[in-house]
Design a protein around this nucleic acid. Structure first.
Length: 514
RNA sequence: GCGGGAGUAGCUCAGCUGGUAGAGCGACAGCCUUCCAAGCUGUAGGUCGCGAGUUCGAACCUCGUCUCCCGCUCCA
């Protein structure tokens, strides 16, 4: 089974390349790890996904508006958001077990062991002294406990100094002096401590001396938070309201793999919804429901989705879950829905000195709104659609076809117009038809090779409908409309073609179900 | 970053003990053909991932390097 799934991912990667969906970045130079380019068909699919999301969020909600914030942001943004501290981890590897640990966590675990010793002393003493036991006094006077406490303080100080001054070799020395062993193997054979900063940085300003270090945003959310007041004031928005954004984000992942699932440059579709404090859980639940519906309407299979509730919440959240999708490599995060409390806006208030509050006329008071976030990885959504759509079918006559059953509304091309043969005026008639259709739909024209082969080509890129012009067309102005998934054909009048196709492939049809 | 596997035409792969680089499919042009990868003719496309070394001679042997896949790790 696992092997089958691996094969599926491989097949999708290979199909994506062969049919112009996704190419490895700078491939002629051997590629660049974990960077991919969207090709001629990929970009169409990607744009359609964006359109479906944007319409569902912005167009359908009168209290949600969009923005497009800059990728570069003031460096203080990332101090406020916590990324400068939290995205900066000192890591150390054990050479024997090949396990990697955060150096500070190893030291903290060691401290926890000493604390456990103190606790043991305390409980022993408590037994000895019975009811007359004064814990605070014991801790303050017992020589052994005092010794442990001193150890802890000393280790903490050394660790803090080392981390704050970015002195990684001191950190390693500390680990060695404490005799910290790999919890798995017991080995003390450590590599040097290395800093992993997940944010990409660059210099702003052309002169190196005057240059300021700035970061490529590791998430799009902060662009929304810093514009909270701008949008609220200029758009006369009233709580509850949302701000949506589609844009690139960058993370220098230690390991970026699994095709476009984890890339260092990726695109997010995020919506931050600002609510009255105390109502956030109610809205969190509503957005969970709304978002899963958005996914299921696409028809990729309801069994391919599940919620995963977070038990360990991030520092800013009071509720969080993922919508997971059944990718070829198993169920993995596709979208996150987080109740971020007022953490971000408050942090930006503190760092900027600006009030980021909403005056509630009903309550007649100001407050910092709470935030419910929905954040979906566009590239992951792309992969989800590719993997759920890829089908190898054996036909009745025993031949095989590979068909991308991409939801019609998202397919790169909506219609292929095909003259049955390349003579008798059929190509001319087909051109007439496509000239009309291309005003509304992304169309393809193809007259090369036998008709069956042309159908298969369209199947491979997921074109949901094919219009075939035959000799009867010249007589009565009718064509056949072939359905990609069933291969069934219906004969319809050319004059009804546009409305018929529109009905089948429009995003509107999906939106109505939301 | 560590360990394992792999890299030859657009794709799937063959290529013997080191001796001038191959097939099928696909692509392109044309012929033929009235509905699901038919047939015929022709064409294009590879310094065998890259770089060094050994050798008279390297796709093949050695070393290095890059990229991809799997596992570990990480994942706001």
């Amino acid at each position: 089974m696992a092997q089958q799934e691996d094969n599926l991912l491989k097949k999708i990667i290979s199909h994506a390349k062969e049919y112009g969906f996704i190419f490895p970045s700078s491939e002629i130079y051997d590629g660049l790890a974990a960077a991919y380019d969207y090709g001629q068909n990929g970009v169409e699919l990607k744009n359609n996904i964006k359109a479906y999301w944007w319409k569902a969020m912005v167009q359908l909600h009168e209290n949600i508006v969009g923005i497009d914030a800059s990728i570069f942001m003031h460096p203080t943004t990332w101090k406020a958001s916590g990324h400068v501290d939290a995205f900066n981890d000192p890591m150390i590897d054990n050479k024997d077990s090949k396990k990697r640990y955060r150096a500070d966590v190893l030291i903290e675990d060691h401290i926890a062991k000493i604390e456990a010793k103190i606790a043991k002393e305390v409980s022993k003493a408590a037994k000895r002294f019975g009811d007359s036991f004064d814990k605070d006094q014991f801790v303050a006077t017992n020589q052994r406990v005092l010794g442990y406490s001193e150890q802890i303080d000393s280790i903490n100080n050394q660790m803090k100094t080392a981390i704050e001054s970015d002195n990684l070799s001191d950190l390693k020395t500390l680990i060695e002096e404490l005799g910290i062993a790999d919890p798995v193997s017991g080995s003390k054979n450590w590599t040097d401590v290395r800093q992993f900063n997940l944010m990409f940085s660059t210099e702003l300003g052309s002169l190196a001396e005057g240059a300021n270090k700035i970061y490529l945003r590791p998430e799009t959310a902060q662009g929304i938070f810093v514009n909270f007041l701008n949008v609220q004031k200029s758009g006369r928005m009233k709580i509850p309201f949302g701000i949506a954004q589609i844009g690139k984000a960058f993370r220098n992942e230690i390991i970026a793999r699994q095709f476009i699932f984890r890339m260092r440059e990726f695109e997010q579709m995020e919506m931050q919804f600002f609510v009255k404090p105390g109502e956030e859980i109610e809205w969190y639940d509503r957005w969970k429901e709304n978002r899963i519906k958005w996914h299921k309407i696409l028809g990729l299979g309801e069994e391919n989705y599940r919620f995963h509730d977070h038990l360990n919440l991030a520092h800013y959240a009071n509720a969080a879950c993922d919508i997971e999708f059944n990718f070829p490599m198993g169920f993995k995060e596709l979208e996150g829905i987080h109740s971020r409390t007022d953490f971000d806006l408050k942090a930006h208030e503190e760092h900027s000195g600006k009030k980021l509050q909403f005056f509630d006329p009903q309550e007649n008071k100001n407050y910092v709104p709470y935030v419910v976030e929905t954040s979906i990885g566009l590239d992951r959504m792309f992969l989800a659609i590719m993997s759920a759509s890829y089908v190898e079918e054996t036909l009745e006559d025993g031949s095989e076809r590979t068909v991308m059953k991409i939801p019609a509304a998202l397919a790169p091309y909506k219609v292929a117009v095909l003259p049955l043969v390349k003579k008798d005026g059929l190509p001319e008639k087909a051109r007439e038809i496509i000239d009309e259709l291309k005003l509304d739909f992304n169309c393809q024209y193809d007259e090369k090779d036998a008709i069956g082969k042309r159908y298969r080509r369209q199947d491979a890129i997921g074109t949901p409908y094919a219009v075939t012009v035959d000799h009867q067309t010249l007589e009565d102005n009718t064509v056949t409309l072939r359905d990609r998934d069933s291969s069934n054909q219906e004969r319809i009048d050319i004059s009804t073609l546009r409305s018929r196709v529109s009905e089948l492939v429009s995003i509107t049809r999906l939106l109505k179900q939301l």
